[in-house]
Design a protein around this nucleic acid. Structure first.
Length: 426
RNA sequence: GGAGGAGUACCCAAGUCUGGCUGAAGGGGUCGGUCUUGAAAACCGAGAGGCGGGUAACACCGCGCGGGGGUUCGAAUCCCUCCUCCUCCGCCA
């Protein structure tokens, strides 16, 4: 959520910046009117309440002196009726204003390139040598299925489309990747490991920005009104919801492995085969709580931490700076890391690293105090995948496949695979 | 799932039956001071944090006793509802 006071003071500037995202701002036009009306009503209603408080005190005093207070009670009751009316109107206005503010996206940072679509994202660096095959490379789902380590058909039977079974060395590979990434981030990059609930309530999803606008993207447990998490970002960020953190202890950096659940509503027909787009996948997520003045430096570090995983695995990738049209709802600035998928002849997103500034912190009410007695300030939150594990498996199967159908295990992963160097068909 | 109990400020805790000078006693911790070579202890003193309105900034006002709603001139206190925690029983990985 944006700062109402800031929007009030810089309305035209904010509108201009938001328009660069290609966002429909029709509702936002009502901001000024609602904001003004809200403050008028507050002033009125609070004056009346002050009057009522005073009047009630007098009644109490009269009662104590055994005087007759009927007249005063009658007058005060009328005051109360008036307050009730104005309060009701105030509620409506606040609901309307809130409706708008909860649906306005974050303001892009000045360093974000202006663009109209994903085609305007800017490639800022590339790493690694693209593999060359002396044979016809197979897509990862064929590699995995032929090796007997992935089974999409049986997942379709037990559950439905966009699910998968990992078997044998495949299951172990997935587990090895999770352990490898967690160890790297906790031991080398200074993260604290976290294991979170896989279901969260509405308040949490609202805090991180998935609600109210994107409810259709999530899976809902209706009886409880809980949602399956689309990413560990949600529970980890909300871990500190409604808290005032000690500034001396910032930054906090957490690494959380979790399953992630996404309905993929609206992506029917896209990536229908393979591991790229599943309803359930595993991911190691990195989350930072930073002081405002440090958050952009943190974003660079965070992106570097995710890149390190790919470097150690020897997977070629590139980093894109997302343009204003492709920032998503909550980010002020975002880098996507894309890994090379040879059979598609292109790079595919495997990590997304964002600085939300105080956008989530304001929604989730996460603040910090620089020192004892200082005013609380909103923290900046950041997160990035480090990495999406299913897509990492896809990249390994494709990039490391051999002509005989086997797959070389990247060296960094071998300690986690019992020293094995290769996955072969049984 | 069944039966009870409880949520008060940074922490502990009184007040709730019997609504009104209680925005909340008391203690701990915290901060400042006295004492001390320094520290501890003791003693003295200070302080509700937060949100909203308002202000150039103060002042000032409103809201805050788990959340929401209601009754009343007036609610920590009465009523409804939801949430969380604890104890016992049952079930269970």
């Amino acid at each position: 959520m944006l700062d109402i006071k800031y929007v009030r003071a810089h309305y035209e500037e904010v509108k201009e910046k938001l328009s660069k995202r290609g966002e429909d701002l029709a509702d936002f036009e009502r901001f000024g009117e609602l904001d003004t009306r809200r403050r008028e009503l507050i002033t009125q209603v609070e004056e009346l309440k002050a009057e009522r408080n005073e009047s009630s005190q007098k009644i109490a005093e009269m009662k104590r002196n055994k005087e007759n207070a009927d007249e005063a009670i009658k007058k005060t009751r009328e005051l109360g009726d008036r307050i009730k009316e104005l309060d009701a109107e105030l509620n409506t206005v606040e609901e309307d204003l809130n409706y708008i503010m909860m649906r306005v996206p974050n303001i892009p940072h000045e360093s974000v390139p202006v663009g109209e679509s994903e085609d305007d994202n800017v490639e800022i660096r590339k790493w690694g040598e693209l593999p060359e095959f002396g044979f016809e490379a197979k897509p990862h789902w064929e590699v995995g299925t032929d090796l007997g380590i992935l089974d999409f058909e049986r997942a379709a039977k037990t559950t439905g489309s966009r699910f998968v079974f990992y078997k044998g060395a495949g299951a172990k590979l997935e587990r090895a990747l999770a352990a490898f990434m967690l160890d790297l981030h906790t031991e080398e990059h200074g993260y604290e490991e976290m294991l979170t609930p896989y279901m969260v309530n509405r308040a949490s999803l609202t805090g991180t920005g998935q609600l109210p606008k994107f409810e259709e993207d999530a899976f809902l447990i209706e009886e409880e009104d809980y949602f399956l998490i689309p990413t560990a970002e949600v529970p980890v960020t909300n871990f500190h919801r409604d808290e005032i953190l000690n500034g001396a202890e910032l930054p906090h950096a957490y690494a959380a492995y979790s399953a992630c659940f996404r309905s993929e509503a609206g992506s029917a027909g896209r990536d229908t085969r393979g591991l790229i787009r599943m309803h359930q996948f595993n991911k190691v997520e990195l989350v930072h709580f930073a002081k405002p003045e440090d958050s952009y430096e943190t974003l660079e570090k965070l992106t570097g931490h995710a890149e390190k995983v790919l470097q150690l695995l020897g997977l070629p990738y590139r980093v894109l700076k997302m343009c204003t049209a492709d920032l998503g709802f909550t980010a002020a600035k975002k880098y996507d890391i894309e890994v090379w998928i040879p059979t598609q002849g292109t790079y595919r997103e495997i990590s997304s690293c964002s600085n939300f500034e105080d956008f989530q912190a304001r929604r989730a009410n996460i603040r910090f105090r620089r020192e004892q007695g200082a005013k609380p300030e909103f923290v900046h939150t950041l997160n990035g995948s480090g990495l999406a594990i299913g897509r990492t498996v896809a990249a390994i199967l494709e990039n490391y496949q051999q002509e005989d159908g086997s797959v070389i295990i990247p060296e960094a992963l071998r300690p986690y695979m019992g020293g094995k160097e290769k996955i072969e068909a049984k």
